[in-house]
Amino acid sequence: MVAGLLLGGFYAAVSLGVSLIFGLLDIANIAQPAFVILGSYAAYVMNRSFGLDAILTGLLFTPVFYVLGAVVYRLYYESFERRGEESLRGLVFFFGVLFIIEVSLSLKYGVDYRLVEAAYIGKSIDLGGVGIAFRLLVPCLVGLAMTLALHLFLSRTFYGRAVMAVSQDRLALRLMGADPVRIKTIAFGVGIAAASLAGALLITIAPVVPSTDRDYIGRMFAITVLGGMGSIAGTLVAAVILGVAESLMSTFFGPSWSLAVSFGILLVALAVRPAGLLGR
């Protein structure tokens, strides 16, 4: 149960990028988990070569990932969105990006499991008889901080409010004096920057191979839709629900059930509340 709650905070961190890019911008960026894994490998390389802390690396790499995201969006925009061909071809584009990242990582680092080292990994604190592993606690706290930061960005800044509006009425946004393409570029960059940190959290929790993205793609989209498209608070709630449900299931029935749980909950929730838990 406690492990599930902690897992939820981490799942929220992983899903924020999808929540922003898919939930608010309406861009089916299925390559998001690959960017997360890319973040994991960045953390791995910096940890191995310079002994840098994984999460600190994730934070330091956010500007790099932001620029990467902005470039990918511009490419997508010029090639597809501007011509109104975003739906199917856009999906193929992001599928391509996913494979390029995954295959590149496999070629460079092989398919062995990679992990990072830090003083706190392996330690735990005891809270009223329940042992809490730092390996899970730290990613959860960072995930909560990321969720809060993104929530404040969206609700308190002019750029953030424009991001929330951009998929609703592009022309109206221009009439407010904002350039929709610029707004989307910023939002996409922020979403990919979040993947840098999420990747660092991922490799702190467990070892990673290039194909780990496949374990997360379903979960990320399930959490986003369950929470309600574009709702950051909803993403957190859905992530915690999924984290708890998965860890209970794996305790009682074994870990192979965990993905079935994601989609089982998603189906039931959508039948009852089609807009998602906190969707507008």
Binding site: A162, M164, A165, Q168
Partner: peptide, 15 residues
């Protein structure tokens, strides 16, 4: 912007 609140719409006006 139908899915934004009245206040959010107004604040976007001040972009």
């Amino acid at each position: 912007f139908p899915k934004l609140t009245v206040q959010e719409n107004l604040l976007l006006g001040a972009y």
